[in-house]
Design a protein around this nucleic acid. Structure first.
Lengths: 209, 209
DNA sequence: CCCGCGTTTGAACGACGGGTCAAGCCGACC
DNA sequence: GGTCGGCTTGACCCGTCGTTCAAACGCGGG
């Protein structure tokens, strides 16, 4: 925010950010180095000065963006006291387009690109597994907390419950981001909460908001 | 099976089949027209004789392959009398790599490519929505059948239950196809059955393999 | 003020691959 | 057995990038 040019403060990050933005709205396949350069406000040559190749840059950008999302979410969740509210917030943050702060294509669009890449690129596959397990771990932690405070009850392990919830969220988010006419963001939210309530053994709130 | 060359029987289909195979194991991004030509055993020029452009061919191939899968599954399900068994079979067919007849990369790999494309290509988006709703419709039909025969009981509509199940399957299948170390095909199967049993109000079989 | 080096530029190179096309092939039908 | 027309071929054209590179820039230290 100060007057200093961000300059080499971290060109690396600037470029990653620009890349993530471009990928988000053009798609990985339609992303050229020159697009990223333009978005970052630098020359194409500079991109390759900071990254060995386009491929590496793209991979880094994908994991970087997901990392950002996770950290933001994680920080926010940690401040919420009740496990039930934590879970509700996590769900809200997971529903594409529910919160106004995003456009139609949010992190989920990037996430799908990660999947495609991870199918053939072992490096990407490793990163994906790490990110995904961390994400499920986050959910499992919330569940463990809820079990400890007796907010939740279930005969399943937190890990199994987290997997179920995470998978449901993934599957629904895909429908929502695709703008399936039968699956609106609000519908997704309701379904997630409902399944969570059933699996974790708590009652749904009488509807707030 | 007869001695006649399949020739122009349906070159169109031959090419679509070849395309689907190539996309499955190289990925959409790495699929060249010449690859498809080679796989189909014809010259590159011929591909464009039958299809207006590479793009159209790829789109058609993706929906074609998914269509094939659906029809095969649908036909098989129809012959099973019990709704519970129908559902179990549907789940088995949905788990990547569970049945021996497939390699690691099966229809799911294509399906992810469909998602990526559908995000920006309206034509593909329309096709995807149709295919997905048909798939969920199939599940809903099974559930309706089970409710009619009193095998299932639930306060939710068949459509909502189908959405939950389909989404769970999507989410889990992604993990499985990515070879996530925590989600094996068998694990996915167990989780799907378990959730289905809970949501639909029936008891799991005592394990029959 | 000047040097030196990390940064930045953008023109140029070269590979790659989609799409075109003129020419052959071949079976059907007369 | 000739001719017509749909199939098929593969060489070629041409635009589009990823990547390279020599030159310029500009800041910090001497």
């Amino acid at each position: 925010m100060s007057g200093t040019t961000p300059k080499s403060k971290d060109r690396h990050q600037e470029i990653l950010d620009a890349a993530a933005r471009v990928i988000t709205d053009r798609g990985l396949a339609e992303t050229r180095i020159s697009d990223i350069a333009e978005e970052a406000g630098v020359s194409p040559g500079l991109i390759l000065y900071y990254f060995d190749s386009k491929d590496r840059l793209l991979s880094e950008a994908l994991t970087y963006a997901n990392d950002q999302f996770y950290l933001r979410m994680s920080r926010e969740i940690r401040r919420i006291p009740s496990a039930r509210d934590q879970l509700a917030r996590l769900i809200d943050l997971s529903v594409p387009g529910l919160l106004p702060e995003y456009g139609r294509l949010d992190e989920w669009a990037l996430w799908i690109e990660v999947w495609v890449r991870a199918l053939r690129d072992p490096e990407m596959a490793k990163d994906r597994e790490f990110l995904d397990q961390r994400w499920r771990g986050q959910i499992a932690d919330i569940i463990r907390g809820g079990q400890a405070s007796a907010e939740f009850s279930s005969e399943q392990t937190p890990e199994e419950l987290a997997l179920r919830l995470a998978s449901l969220i993934d599957g629904l988010a895909i429908q929502v981001i695709m703008e399936d006419s039968q699956v609106t963001p609000e519908h997704m939210r309701g379904t997630c909460i409902d399944v969570a309530a059933r699996e974790l053994g708590f009652e749904r709130e009488p509807v707030s908001t």
